[in-house]
């Protein structure tokens, strides 16, 4: 669906994206996980043809370059920074963006109604965007990327700075979009979101793609062992193991009073730590 080949982008001396290659398959939810400044947004900008790479190539399968008119019709991007007209209503924003894609008449009205319902803003459609809460604006920002019914949807940190209610709405929406057969690229620095939503995840840091795979694959490859913490009266004992339940069973069999047992399974956070020596969020 989308092929990124050896993308490089520098800003002055900074290599913001440094040789990123990803092949995104039709119908998958691909997560691009990385900390602030990792190069996620810059990668997306190159993927949709907003920024020209210094070197490397982007191809939308079947449509060629992302700047070709046919690519633009299948691409939908919800930028990280809200990109909305605050003095227009939600409906006016969506109608306007829809018209840019050649929609008009009842087709336009139908799409606008559909996406407003998808993001749960139907009842506020005639209010100006500037009167919206941050979470509502985020949801509308997403709706604006969907109004022309794109097959490939790129969401740049769609849950940044939103309340739990809007976040859940957005996560449900991503699942819905995936169930409709759309291909989704989702950037985030919340590993829980990547873990919950994504079929595959790419881990990016300092412009480099450190690993790609399903969450399980990544954890198996880079997550290390689970940590079992066994607390007794005389203190706590930490045991690393690939099979934590065996450790727990042994500890129970060994007798004595167990005050507590905790199993810390490796997650994407551990993967990131193993790969970079740093935590995802500081």
């Amino acid at each position: 669906m989308l092929r990124l080949e050896n993308l490089v982008k520098t800003f002055g001396a900074l290599r913001a994206v440094d040789g990123v290659s990803i092949e995104i398959r039709p119908g998958e939810v691909f997560g691009l996980l990385g900390p602030n400044g990792a190069g996620k947004s810059t990668t997306l900008a190159m993927a949709v043809g907003l920024t020209a790479p210094d070197s490397g190539r982007v191809e939308i399968t079947g449509h060629g370059s992302p700047t070709s008119p046919s690519s633009r019709r299948v691409l939908g991007i919800a930028p990280q920074a809200l990109a909305l007209y605050h003095d227009l209503t939600a409906e006016e924003n969506l109608r306007f963006f829809g018209r840019l894609y050649g929609l008009r008449g009842s087709a336009l009205k139908g799409r606008v109604d559909t996406v407003l319902a998808m993001v749960g803003l139907g009842d506020r459609r005639r209010d100006r965007v500037k009167t919206y809460s941050g979470g509502m604006q985020r949801r509308l920002n997403l709706a604006a990327a969907l109004v022309h019914d794109p097959a490939l949807v790129l969401l740049d940190e769609p849950t940044a700075g939103v309340d739990p209610q809007s976040r859940n709405n957005i996560l449900d929406l991503v699942r819905l979009l995936a169930s409709q057969g759309r291909t989704i690229v989702y950037t985030t620095h919340y590993m829980e979101e990547a873990q919950k939503l994504c079929t595959r995840v790419g881990i990016i840091d300092k412009g480099r793609l450190l690993g790609v795979g399903t969450v399980d694959e990544l954890i198996a490859r880079h997550g290390g062992k689970a940590v079992v913490t066994i607390e007794r009266d005389d203190g706590a004992e930490r045991v690393e193991s690939d099979d934590p339940m065996v450790v727990v069973a042994k500890a129970a069999a060994a007798g004595g009073t167990l005050r507590g047992v905790r199993i810390d399974r490796p997650d994407l956070e551990s993967v990131f730590l193993a790969m970079t020596g740093r935590r995802l969020r500081d």
């Binding site: 907003l50 633009r72 019709r73 991007i77 920074a81 809200l82 990109a83 909305l84 963006f97 840019l100």
Partner: peptide
């Protein structure tokens, strides 16, 4: 600045 130019740029126009 508002980013809406970005949306205009990615539209097929």
């Amino acid at each position: 600045a508002a980013g809406t130019l970005l949306r205009l740029t990615v539209a097929p126009i």
